[in-house]
């Protein structure tokens, strides 16, 4: 499969958007090089602010910029963009509903060799718990671009969760990114896999494996985690009666939690999660980590079969 890089795509798209949005300002806590916005810094020095290694300050500065009508983009690693300065985001961005965009690369254990301290695996849970906050996740490099544009079109705080490099191609061409609307990549009648980020590519691979075994899967890219597409979830849950969620995130409070909240209320069906168990990551390559922590197409296949078995068992009773 072809691959792209989340951070290269982010850097390139911000350059394009700088032309479209005169009010776009990038703020970073000494991570311009690492999130590939060096070119932006060179081309738009007056709209680029480095605050040094100070993440709390970074969020406060972004909030202040937003009060003047500018559109600040905080670009950093997920750990340092949202987990370290969470309280500043809560009180100075989300609560006053300021138009701050937080575009974070390096979300999940896909970070790899830097290890657990740099792997944000709780970010979806904490960010979607914030009122006023929109939470997005891009599946590949192409979707990184459309997600950036959707985030900038929206007025209000947005958290965009991105991986690092090695993004398998899900979209060979751009497709409109609509907040609150899921993207149904494949329609099947036996089971629904709802994935986000890098796990979308794994879900598509799982669909092929499942198909070989005579199981027809619906694959949903839930790129808008908040607001979440309730209608799509309920429809898929009613149609297939078995749901699997897949994410590079702890199984507590992430995409799985968000989907579970919807189906528990509106359409209770068996739900299986492919996610990181309640533990921290470690150093290793992305592929090794995904294998060890169960974030693979094979895990999705197994989870799909469990969900189908539970559904069939309850139908028999």
């Amino acid at each position: 499969m072809e691959t792209g890089s989340f951070r290269e795509a982010l850097g390139q798209e911000l350059l394009l958007m700088a032309r479209e949005y005169e009010s776009l300002v990038v703020v970073t806590p000494d991570l311009a090089k690492s999130v590939r916005i060096g070119r932006f810094k060179e081309m738009y020095p007056n709209r680029f602010i480095s605050v040094g290694v100070s993440e709390a300050d970074c969020i406060g500065v972004a909030a202040g910029l937003a009060t003047t009508g500018l559109i600040p983009v905080v670009a950093a690693f997920a750990m340092f963009a949202v987990e370290k300065p969470f309280e500043q985001i809560r009180n100075a961005v989300a609560y006053p509903c300021l138009n701050v965009k937080i575009f974070a690369t390096h979300a999940g254990i896909c970070v790899g060799r830097d290890g657990a301290t740099h792997q944000a695996i709780e970010d979806i849970a904490i960010m979607r718990a914030l009122p006023n906050m929109t939470v997005l996740a891009a599946a590949d490099a192409t979707e990184t671009r459309t997600a950036v544009r959707a985030a900038l079109r929206h007025v209000g705080p947005v958290y965009l969760r991105l991986g690092r490099d090695h993004a398998e191609t899900v979209y060979d061409r751009e497709q409109e990114f609509i907040l609150g609307r899921a993207d149904i990549l494949r329609s099947g009648s036996d089971v629904t896999v709802i994935a986000c980020g890098l796990m979308v590519a794994e879900a598509l691979k799982a669909a092929v494996l499942l198909d070989q075994q005579g199981i027809d899967a619906t694959i949903v890219n839930m790129h808008s985690i908040k607001p979440i597409d309730e209608e799509a979830i309920i429809e898929a849950a009613s149609a297939t009666g078995a749901i699997v969620t897949a994410e590079d995130h702890t199984r507590i409070g992430g995409l799985g939690g968000a989907v579970a909240e919807v189906i528990a209320r509106a359409c209770p069906v068996p739900l299986e999660q492919v996610a990181i168990d309640d533990r921290f990551g470690e150093s290793g390559s992305q592929a090794e980590l995904y294998e060890k922590y169960g974030l693979t197409a094979e895990s999705i296949v197994k989870a799909a079969k469990r969900a189908i078995a539970r559904r069939d068992c309850s139908r028999r009773h």
Binding site: I59, G60, G64, T68
Partner: peptide
């Protein structure tokens, strides 16, 4: 600016001044 949690205001002030 909305405030209450101590320590944040000066960063916000910096952002306004940059603005």
């Amino acid at each position: 600016m909305t405030t209450g949690s101590l320590g944040i205001g000066l960063s916000v002030g910096c952002g306004m001044a940059f603005g």
